[in-house]
């Protein structure tokens, strides 16, 4: 028999326990999470002929046009630059859309939160799964570029797998963190948006880290770059340096700890904020 037991949580230990319970209760709901995420994508493109293939198409057009422009601007060989750009843009779009969505984790699910009790982790997982589905559509572009130019990542690419798993953990944490913050303070989403735009230009997304020359070590202090590089590097056939890994792991740990502390503290208040 299902039992609902909720009470005031006066101390940190109780609050942490309730947050753990929230996460545990969300696990059996994976089917609901999958369905909600898939319907999100379907709804966005309902009534259009190409449907979610628009995602693939617009990414392909963007990479095609940017590829020619920047190869000329940076005096680079298109044959070498295009695979780099395709991978970078697709991955960055994933990161940036995810961060944007994370801001509306809870405010975007207002109707559901106010009409039925669900673990809050479900909403965070929905944001992450939805963006993985989008990424799945865009990976097609990378494959197309690789096939056309006959380039393929080697066995080193396998190193990207554990890094991507780390991304997903951080993505869940960010969804909880930004979701709660943005529900309480409505002026945070525009701040996040402009930070992400700035990060796009300073994090070696469309230019190669080597182009910085002697100043390249500075990039290790940019958490956006190091987090990004641990997945992109292996896919391009290079192993990121130890400093990159250390910086990425430290940033991830910081995000996860901050997210957990904030989530445990605010979980019971989110329903009042949205």
């Amino acid at each position: 028999m299902p039992v609902l037991d909720i009470g005031a949580a006066p101390d940190a230990a109780t609050r942490n326990g309730l947050a753990v319970r929230d996460v545990a209760e969300s696990l059996p709901l994976w089917r609901l999470c999958w369905t909600l995420s898939w319907l999100d994508i379907k709804l966005r493109y309902r009534g259009s002929v190409l449907g979610p293939l628009w995602l693939t198409l617009s990414t392909a057009i963007m990479i095609g046009s940017m590829g020619f422009l920047y190869a000329a601007l940076f005096h680079m060989d298109l044959h070498e630059y295009l695979p780099f750009l395709a991978l970078s843009i697709v991955l960055w779009n994933f990161v940036s859309a995810l961060v944007g969505d994370a801001c509306v984790t809870f405010t975007g699910a207002e109707g559901m939160i106010r009409s039925v009790r669900m673990p809050f982790m479900l909403y965070a997982a929905r944001v992450v799964v939805r963006n993985i589905l989008v990424l799945g559509h865009n990976i097609v572009v990378i494959v197309m570029v690789d096939v056309l130019l006959k380039t393929a990542p080697g066995a080193l690419a396998l190193l990207a797998i554990p890094a991507f798993v780390l991304w997903l953990v951080v993505a869940l944490a960010l969804s909880l963190l930004l979701g709660a913050l943005c529900a309480r303070f409505r002026d945070i989403p525009p701040i996040i948006a402009s930070v992400m735009q700035m990060a796009f230009f300073v994090s070696a997304v469309i230019w190669r880290p080597e182009q910085l020359g002697e100043q390249q070590w500075l990039l290790n202090f940019n958490p956006f770059f190091t987090m990004f590089e641990i997945v992109r590097g292996p896919l391009l056939g290079t192993v990121p340096s130890q400093a990159v890994y250390v910086s990425a792991l430290m940033s991830s740990a910081a995000i996860c700890v901050a997210a957990w502390l904030l989530f445990a503290r605010t979980r019971g208040r989110i329903a009042f904020w949205i």
């Binding site: 028999m1 299902p2 037991d5 009470g7 005031a8």
Partner: peptide, 20 residues
């Protein structure tokens, strides 16, 4: 009672499947 708002003090306990 449905568990959507959490009380600031006191406690709500419900045994059984619930629909609100």
């Amino acid at each position: 009672l449905a568990g959507i708002y959490e009380p600031m003090s006191g406690r709500v306990q419900v045994r059984g499947s619930m629909n609100a």
